[in-house]
């Protein structure tokens, strides 16, 4: 099973190119999607989920032509959008029962699946509470529960960990990793550690194009030999700071300790550091990367 995008374009009115020729093959497992705000990640996901039509290109999902048979794709796909509405007065089983009936699940099968997905996302003990009283993490888990109804082979989750606290994020990541053993899970995020911890593969999008595909380790290597530790007196730092690409800085009273990206040893005094995934991403997408 795989998802295949070939030459996918999306042009919005006013000739705005949201997607500019996307070629991407996504196998079973966790697949991360990184990229600046406005790179086209959500557009790509919405097109995959049949919520939007591409201007050009071809998409096949487990052998099904997405443009010709969107209904068949919808049947094997679950989607958790960035923002989704909830009925505040419903309980989780009531809400899921409603979503299940929209997905065409009937009677006994629906009841069985609702109980099953509630258990999977660890919300069974909250089943009597109205959704208005749910925390951010609980809402996200309920979002995954509704996406899981109908046992889809493909899960598409758009920035699911934004706003979750560290512990909820960890739990949510583990849940997705668990689900990805037999499914395709396509995950977009702005949190580098989400990708490092869970994804076998990652794609970096920028300005509607795919800039990189490969393993998280390969993405790190995009910054190999370009990450430097630099300690400067505060006055010296003031003089040179506009010339440095600073990943992070820590000030003491009269000095600054910096992590810097540069193709060569900055100011001739930097100490080389091993790259992180974030360094690799910043090198790849940064203007100074060429």
């Amino acid at each position: 099973m795989e998802i295949r995008f070939e030459g996918v374009q999306k042009i919005y009115p006013g000739q705005v190119k949201a997607l500019d020729g996307i070629d991407l093959t996504i196998p079973v497992g966790m697949y991360g999607l990184l990229g600046p705000n406005g790179a086209g990640k959500t557009t790509l996901m919405r097109i995959l989920c049949t919520l939007m039509e591409p201007t050009a290109g071809k998409i096949t999902v487990d052998g099904i032509d997405r443009l010709v048979e969107p209904e068949r794709v919808r049947r094997i796909l679950g989607y958790l959008p960035q923002e989704f509405g909830l009925y505040r007065r419903l309980t989780a089983p009531e809400y899921l029962d409603f979503v299940g009936s929209m997905k065409g699940l009937s009677g006994a099968e629906r009841r069985r699946q609702v109980a099953d997905v509630l258990e999977r996302v660890n919300l069974t003990h909250e089943r009597r509470k109205p959704l208005g009283g749910y925390s951010g993490g609980m809402k996200r888990r309920l979002g995954i529960a509704q996406a899981l109804l109908g046992d889809p082979k493909i899960l598409v989750v758009d920035e699911p960990t934004a706003g979750l606290d560290p512990e909820e994020r960890l739990r949510f990541r583990n849940l997705l990793a668990d689900l990805s053993t037999s499914r395709i899970v396509l995950l977009s995020t702005h949190i580098a550690s989400d990708i490092e911890a869970t994804c076998q593969s990652v794609a970096v999008m920028q300005k509607g194009r795919v800039r990189f595909t490969g393993s998280p380790t390969a993405l790190m290597q995009a910054a190999a030999g370009q990450v430097w530790q630099l300690d400067l007196p505060a006055a010296e730092y003031e003089r040179v700071r506009s010339t440095l690409k600073v990943v992070s800085a820590r000030r003491t009273s009269d000095a600054v300790s910096l992590r810097v990206l540069a193709p060569e040893r900055p100011l001739g005094i930097g100490e080389s550091l091993p790259p992180t995934l974030e360094d690799g991403y910043l090198c790849l997408t940064g203007e100074g990367a060429a």
Partner: peptide
């Protein structure tokens, strides 16, 4: 940092380290 992309977060970090001085 919620909703910022990685480059925007990098810039925010640089700014905060200045401001925190």
């Amino acid at each position: 940092t919620t909703a910022l992309d990685l480059e925007e977060k990098r810039q925010l970090r640089a700014r905060l380290s200045e401001l925190a001085a």
